[in-house]
Amino acid sequence: MPSCAPMAVDQTLLRAWQLPMPDPDSDKEGRGHVLVLGGSREMPGAVILAATAALRAGAGKLTIATGRSVAQLVALALPEARVIGLAETDTGGFTRDAVATLDPLADKVSAILIGPGMQDERATAVLVHALLPRLAGSDTSVVLDACAMGAILFPPDGVAPFRFLQPVVLTPHAGEMAHLSGAAKDAIVADADHHALDAAARWNAIVALKGARTVIAAPDGVSWQHAGGNVGLATSGSGDTLAGILAGLAARGATLAQATCWGVALHAQAGTRLARQFGQLGYLAREIPAEIPFLLEMIAGRQGSDP
């Protein structure tokens, strides 16, 4: 496995790695269809944040699959979305019936984000492992966030270590990486590059190990790093917006690595812009998505510099 120094995710790299743009004559299908699967009775807002971010990142069509108990609330909050209500477990997950409900969408979505606001890690792992074979061989990009990353800990055959057959994106912070890998959190913080690269190779995933310096690692040993943003991004719901941005970019046709690098940079720069307006502490995760369309244009060189 290569052990090259990580590439800096900066404006030079991103402008040389332009995101796919829809044909001017294309309709919303040409901009990609994203499915956000998540939410629970206690955390319905997570899917709203993630789904809003996916649309702000440029996805053209949005479907949300969430708990039946909160589906109407989510639909009212996001009139742009089709919302599907799923049967729930007593502990905040979804039953296996969700697979049959979602099966007709498997051939229609460009990207699927699983995890924001879900609570039952074991039930979520069962659902992830039931859905992944249905998506195998397709062009659907898969982003696993929060609870859904626990699929690594509960392999379908009970045999560890687990490895995804097709690459997915994983978005752990150091605490989540400790939970998934068994390594100590302090050790992960001290050597984020090693742990991100090792996890990417073992799990066959693009791993975005989040922190003040985010390390992005691919299974082939290529890695990137982004240092930026501010402490204000360490707030409830911020990770949901990042995951939504990644899914929206992937739905547009970005590769998993490209969507992750761009998404991390966009998320950080949105925090920088909000800190100028509100101060470093106190801005809200719900305010992050509105910054994304301008930043997409600015970083790509289609708008003037950020004032």
Rank of each mutant, 00 (worst) to 15 (best):
W17V: 04
P20M: 09
M21G: 02
M21N: 03
K28W: 00
E29C: 04
G30T: 04
H33P: 02
V34T: 13
L35H: 06
L37W: 05
L37A: 10
L37I: 12
R41L: 12
E42V: 12
M43L: 15
M43C: 05
G45M: 08
A46M: 12
I48S: 08
L49F: 09
T52S: 15
A53L: 10
A53E: 07
L55H: 02
A57Q: 05
A59D: 06
A59K: 07
L62Q: 09
T63A: 13
I64Y: 03
A65M: 09
T66N: 11
S69N: 14
V74S: 11
L78C: 12
E80N: 03
V83I: 02
T89G: 14
D90W: 07
T95A: 12
R96C: 04
R96H: 06
A98M: 09
A98G: 08
V99N: 03
A106K: 08
A106N: 06
D107R: 15
S110N: 15
I112M: 15
L113H: 04
L113V: 00
M118T: 02
Q119E: 15
Q119T: 03
E121D: 11
V126Y: 03
L127D: 03
H129W: 09
H129E: 10
A130T: 02
L132E: 07
L132I: 09
L132A: 10
